[in-house]
Nucleic acid binder design. Structure first.
Lengths: 253, 253
DNA sequence: CAGTCAATCTCGCTC
DNA sequence: GAGCGAGGTTGACTG
């Protein structure tokens, strides 16, 4: 089995052969074609004829990309099943999802290029600057970045209303709820914090809520103040050292 | 200029030639290659060597896909600029974003296939079953699906706290705030509605808030009740007629 | 499974 | 450009 195979302007037999082999051998299939697309499931959509890029991954992910935007115009998430058939000179590819029941149908009138590609990829993304890193930093490394005397008690603490990012005590022994955001905090974040403090304030009279983020929108800050809640500016940490691309362990296949 | 061009196992000159021509002619570029990826911007990430599918769209969108998942492992949104250079036998492609300042760098050690493809696509997605359709249906066509005597006043009404989906009056002349969700309503939706009713209740003593959705989670419903708010089951309408999907063989193992 | 929430969310719209 | 909220959100994680 070749690592990849490409056919330009294939006929319908060549196309189905690549499709079959690609699916069987857990390859990524890439098709550039003129097609129509129909979707029905949680919502419903049609997309009339045009050139698009179609990608079918071995995990069942199915993408239909237009020539713009980051997101696919239609898609199916991992776990879906692929079926295809030919109808005269049309190739119809379906992707089926069971729960929720969803179907994506791509009707290809002209295939420009079809290829499969067997990926060899052992490495996973290493990302820093997320909210969970921010949370760990505050909880384990530097609680007093919140304020002098702040002592964390619990992280990701479930209450009936949701999950509190960090629960702690201030230097006076008052309960403090922290809601963290890795980016600029919005009205949503304020509502979220209010939901948690409302819940806990039934049993704790002296309760503080602090929204912890690198910045906050003006209206969110006003709402926060009107609720008697606080804001603390904290930036998500960057644990990854990456001043330059490191080319050790560089492997050629 | 050809509509598309494909080269298998290109050398570095052929690769850069395709890249240059593809970018110049507003084609979609598709590269299957062994590469390393580094990102820095709002967050920071590295991804060590492995086979991936790289897509560069003429609007500046940049995708790096692994062989799994619906979403790219690394990406750049529309509007970014592409730069590339060769370094010994390496091809380094960068995608630059100015605000926020972000950079994505892909270092290709082995290109399996590179192609460009000039898309001819005049059609846009036609989607039904969204929240805005639900809103229009309630506002213009059938307000009494909420309850007998409900009269809508405003749609997408901005207040200091956010934007109310639908504002109306019940048969007794009480102000009613509707918050719509096209899918199952969660705690977030309840908080959102509460935020709006809190705001308006300063001036209106008789104020009702109704969460309108096809369903609601148990805890969201409890929270809703504790706030004295209401739930009304409404499903998003489907305006699109689409008999085109053929769901023969819509079977799952 | 359902629920909850983050995301380099993206995307569209409004001010 | 900032802010706000929807999305066929997806994805990860927990009970």
């Amino acid at each position: 089995m070749d690592k990849f195979k490409v056919i330009e302007t294939p006929n319908i037999e060549e196309t189905t052969e690549i499709l079959r082999n690609g699916l069987k051998n857990k390859a990524v299939l890439i098709i550039t074609a003129c097609c129509r697309v129909a979707y029905e499931g949680r919502a419903k959509s049609t997309l009339e004829s045009g050139d698009r890029v179609i990608i079918i991954k071995p995990d069942g992910s199915f993408l239909v990309h237009k020539g713009e935007k980051r997101n696919p115009v239609n898609w199916q998430p991992p776990g879906c099943k692929v079926r295809f058939r030919t109808e005269n000179e049309l190739l119809v590819i379906k992707s089926l999802r069971s729960k929720p029941k969803e179907i994506l149908e791509v009707e290809i009138s002209k295939t420009h290029v079809i290829m499969y590609f067997i990926l060899n990829d052992d490495n996973e993304l290493n990302l820093t600057g997320s909210e969970v890193e921010m949370s760990n930093y505050i909880f384990y490394e530097n609680p007093e970045i919140i304020e002098k005397g702040f002592q964390p008690i619990a992280q990701e603490k479930p209450i009936s209303n949701g999950i509190i990012d960090i629960l702690g005590e201030d230097k006076n022994g008052n309960l403090v709820v922290l809601e963290l955001k890795r980016g600029r905090a919005t009205l949503d974040a304020v509502s979220q914090l209010k939901r948690y403090t409302d819940n806990l304030s039934k049993e704790n009279k002296e309760l503080r809520g602090i929204l912890v983020a690198p910045s906050i929108t003006k209206s969110a800050f006003k709402l926060l103040e009107s609720y008697g809640l606080e804001f603390r500016e904290v930036h998500p940490p960057r644990k990854l050292k990456m001043d330059k691309i490191d080319d050790r362990n560089f492997s050629f296949n």
